[in-house]
Simulated assay, not measured.
Amino acid sequence: MLIHIEGSNLPGQEWGQCGQTPGVSGYRNIHIAVQRRDRPSELFGLHPGDALSAHWELEVTARSVDGQWDLRGPYVQGRPGARFIYLSWGTVDDHEVFTMFRRAKLWLDGIDHGVLTAAVDGGLLVGRLGLTDMRGGPLCAAVRPPLIEWSTS
């Protein structure tokens, strides 16, 4: 099965500290990517923070466990019943080195069971979300509906 994540409304390539990180005056050349499970330095689909949109297609397997779907794959994190996908925000320096400063955790437990069953049957699950938070910064922390909309198309 494929999970297709569609991100819109990216926050831009620069972001000030907003009072959250003492000693940090802001971030420049911001990018976002999907983080590989157990390998935070392995990123998939790096997009600049000022892109019009960001898209990722992730191959996953789905199996039924006690009447619930368990999704697994190289970019799916967590244990059964608590699976998620990390979108990592970071800066890219002059040597193309990515340094993460925050993450959004796309919780898979928030997907409606009927939608997930139809996605498993059809082979496609789509997640759509805005990537800028309420204060204008890169979206972070736990992301569940209504911040993300899950569907089969």
Score class of each variant (00 low, 15 high):
1 M>F: 10
1 M>K: 07
4 H>D: 13
5 I>L: 15
7 G>R: 03
8 S>L: 02
8 S>T: 14
9 N>Y: 04
12 G>E: 03
14 E>N: 11
16 G>W: 12
17 Q>C: 15
20 Q>T: 13
20 Q>V: 13
22 P>Y: 09
22 P>R: 10
22 P>A: 14
23 G>H: 09
25 S>C: 11
27 Y>N: 05
29 N>R: 13
30 I>M: 09
34 V>F: 05
35 Q>R: 13
36 R>Q: 15
37 R>T: 08
38 D>G: 05
40 P>F: 07
40 P>C: 10
42 E>M: 12
42 E>G: 01
43 L>D: 07
44 F>R: 09
47 H>D: 01
48 P>G: 00
50 D>F: 05
50 D>H: 08
52 L>Q: 13
53 S>R: 10
54 A>S: 12
54 A>R: 05
59 E>K: 14
62 A>H: 00
62 A>P: 03
65 V>R: 14
65 V>L: 14
65 V>K: 09
67 G>T: 08
69 W>N: 06
74 P>C: 11
76 V>H: 04
78 G>V: 04
80 P>R: 03
84 F>N: 01
85 I>N: 00
88 S>P: 05
89 W>Y: 11
89 W>T: 07
92 V>S: 04
97 V>C: 08
102 R>D: 12
102 R>A: 11
103 R>Q: 15
103 R>A: 11
104 A>W: 06
106 L>T: 01
110 G>Q: 03
113 H>M: 05
113 H>W: 04
117 T>W: 01
118 A>L: 06
119 A>I: 06
127 G>W: 01
128 R>L: 07
131 L>Q: 03
132 T>C: 05
137 G>H: 01
138 P>S: 12
140 C>F: 07
141 A>S: 15
142 A>P: 02
143 V>W: 01
145 P>D: 11
145 P>Y: 09
145 P>E: 08
149 E>A: 13
150 W>D: 07
151 S>H: 09
152 T>P: 02
